[in-house]
């Protein structure tokens, strides 16, 4: 199974780092969309299917928390898992992100393994890159 990832960060360098980590983490990545703020991310969502979003919080125009709120208010987008990667690590800010639907929270600076394991967890994959038991079992069914 391949997946589409969207990286939302106003730093092009950070997007490049995240993209490289995702690419070498064993995912069958179909498309990797990039947005430099929440507004651009919402525009991309209108036209494209995305399986998981990795987003910063502190961005110009529409920040990461506003992006989460917009997605939660939309039936089409609210089930898309969002992993927050941010420098803002206060307990309150983390709880705010989780209460608005974030499925993971990684604090910058981070080790590649932290991102890899969070992506695996959010996408329901085991550490060897296989998808979860329910999905794996589907391969044994006769249709």
């Amino acid at each position: 199974m391949s997946c589409n990832i969207m990286i939302v960060d106003d730093s092009g360098s950070m997007r490049a780092v995240i993209k490289k980590i995702a690419a070498i983490s064993g995912f069958n990545m179909d498309h990797c969309y990039e947005a430099s703020n929440g507004r651009e991310a919402l525009e991309i969502l209108k036209e494209n299917w995305v399986d998981v979003i990795i987003s910063d919080i502190n961005m110009p125009e529409v920040n990461g928390l506003e992006l989460l709120r917009s997605m939660q208010a939309d039936d089409l987008y609210k089930e898309i898992p969002v992993i927050i990667i941010t420098t803002e690590g206060s307990d309150e800010r983390m709880q705010e992100a989780l209460s608005h639907g974030a499925k993971g929270f990684i604090k910058k600076p981070f080790q590649p393994e932290e991102l890899r394991s969070t992506l695996y967890e959010v996408l329901g994959m085991s550490k060897d890159g296989a998808y979860g038991q329910d999905e794996a079992d589907m391969g044994d069914l006769d249709f």
Partner: peptide, 16 residues
């Protein structure tokens, strides 16, 4: 950005 955020959460993680 990373140094500032890292410093502030070490400085006082209970504050925003």
């Amino acid at each position: 950005n990373m140094i500032c955020g890292n410093f502030l959460r070490r400085f006082d993680t209970s504050q925003v």
